[in-house]
Design a protein around this nucleic acid. Structure first.
Lengths: 186, 186, 186, 186
DNA sequence: CATGAATGAGCCTTCATTCAT
DNA sequence: AATGAATGAAGGCTCATTCAT
């Protein structure tokens, strides 16, 4: 049955997010999944692999970036608004997971394929390159990508009154507008 | 002897920075400090406490913020340049430690007193409040503090070609200028 | 199908010979036999039993002793040459299996029916008794059986330049002659 | 205290001899040594290493070969009697250990330094070479070493009525004499 | 003040075996 | 007859922490 596999992945995410990779134990995951510990191993062979599989599942489902699609907008401001809005929404909704991944990534425990900070930065840079190439504009995209990255990180890491995705629509728009204005594009 | 205590703190920092709190072992620290394991406990009673003590030592020595002093500058731009320059310099120089602390902080393993992200954010907000109060200007300091925080985080977390503190003077100034310009102060 | 059963026995022998009883796993055997693990159990009910069955199959096929037939030779020297030649040939050809069985036997893990050292010793003693009874000679057959056993064991266990069965005919005969000469029959 | 270390080694030998390396568990050893399991690991770092250390201890104490000393005897028969007598005595006294080592060795689980069969064979060959060199006799020492090896192995492996070391002095001498006579030295 | 020696608890992983299909 | 999926039990190994000296 697909069922148990999904139970395990779900439980694994729960526990990994709550405790991080090192501190989480396969025992706890198994218990939370209501499965014998060995079943984890029959299915995922190692804790490491279970972690990667579980995380990739979410990343692919949630973070599948629309940056490239947005990049085709002719209007730069619209494009940037789109990115900021969309990314803040996704990151904000998955805050716990993101924090955990960032945490592991900062200690160098993550393979490239699930290293969020790299993923985010390069997909941003990529989208920006596409956009400004299209417009034949010569812009320091690395710098803007860094600015955008900084904005996102500040929302994840710094103390915050209300998560972005819980703001009402006008609140969100106001925030986004403010940040778009701050991006330095000469 | 003051000596042993310092050896231990030094070794502890080394190991904690390299591995993070959870993964670091008192065994390794003791070995690196060339001290019996129990000596750690006689002096610091617990791993947790050794960690906090060691980290505080560095934070106090290195991060002792000049924000408040800078805040008294009459010229806002000068003030902000000062902050950015100074913080990027310090963070960049202590990148490994900062990454580790951020990592632990993201998993909620850090007491308030050494929680870097909180520390940074509030000291920034604080300085900004003082400055703009002095100028009798009504400004959304939380937003600016968040912007500044984002800038700093982007330098710590995102992939970077050359650490800030290794740039030459004109390089640093250029970066700082660009970021000051990006701060949205209506 | 007879087929699967044979596949399993073959694979089991392979794995048991390579790893010994304890270290071999039913998982590996099943994999090598290209069969589901449970099929082993349906057919042989336990690992132990699979082992015994597989080993017996080979022993019966390969080791079926001609000692008794040889024992009827009138000429003692010819008889002994026959035994030595034949046993060295068989043991040498099945060296891996023999080593494994001996290994298990030494730890007392083997039932009588597949305990090689006992099997060999008693069939030797038996043949010798028959032979010397026939000749009405009173000889210490236990001692000779032990001597013969020692010869065989030395070929299996001690480091050797070339296995007996790979020698050319004259080489083999020379070896056999030497050993026959060494047997103490007063 | 040297005490616990010795307790552990003793218990380890007990258990390893009774069960063999693979089947023996560190848990059982620890229990038998009345020591926490981790203490084994603090002292010997790994099961493997505990095994080697324990075995070496006995081998060095018990098997320390006098072959070389005996080799200097001018009389070949005396020399061979000496070897046979001495080795049968030692092997017989340590039968359990020897069986276990042989068992492991047959499955290729033993490092050179504790591989009994190799050890015995080469020390025999060595002694024989020294002896016959001294006498300026050209003899096939490899063959004799193999014969001797066979004798010893037959005593260890084949079923036996009374262990050599439990025979009375005249019984022992008779056995030894018979075997010496069987050695083929042209 | 400093330490060598010891541990209870727990982790990741594996194995022979069984059940429902 | 054959199997995919699951497990209780156990194994090697490690960790933060504590006595007795």
């Amino acid at each position: 049955m697909r069922d148990k596999t999904e139970q395990i992945i779900k439980a694994a995410l729960d526990v990994f997010i709550k405790k991080g990779f090192q501190v989480a134990t396969t025992q706890e995951i198994a218990k939370e999944a209501e499965v014998a510990e060995i079943t984890l191993y029959r299915k995922f062979s190692t804790k490491q692999n279970l972690f990667i599989t579980a995380v990739k599942t979410v990343i692919e489902k949630q973070f599948n970036s629309h940056v490239k699609k947005l990049a085709k907008a002719e209007n730069t401001e619209e494009f940037l608004s789109g990115i900021i809005y969309n990314r803040l929404e996704v990151l904000s909704k998955n805050a716990s997971l993101v924090k955990m991944l960032l945490s592991e990534s900062l200690m160098g425990n993550l393979a490239e394929e699930i290293n969020l900070s790299t993923l985010i930065f390069s997909s941003l840079k990529n989208g920006l390159d596409i956009h400004f190439d299209m417009l034949n504009k010569n812009v320091d995209t690395a710098f803007i990508a860094r600015q955008l990255g900084g904005i996102f990180l500040s929302f994840i890491i710094l103390p915050i009154e209300q998560p972005f995705h819980e703001l009402d629509e006008s609140g969100k728009e106001e925030v986004v507008k403010k940040y778009v204005k701050s991006l330095v594009i000469e």
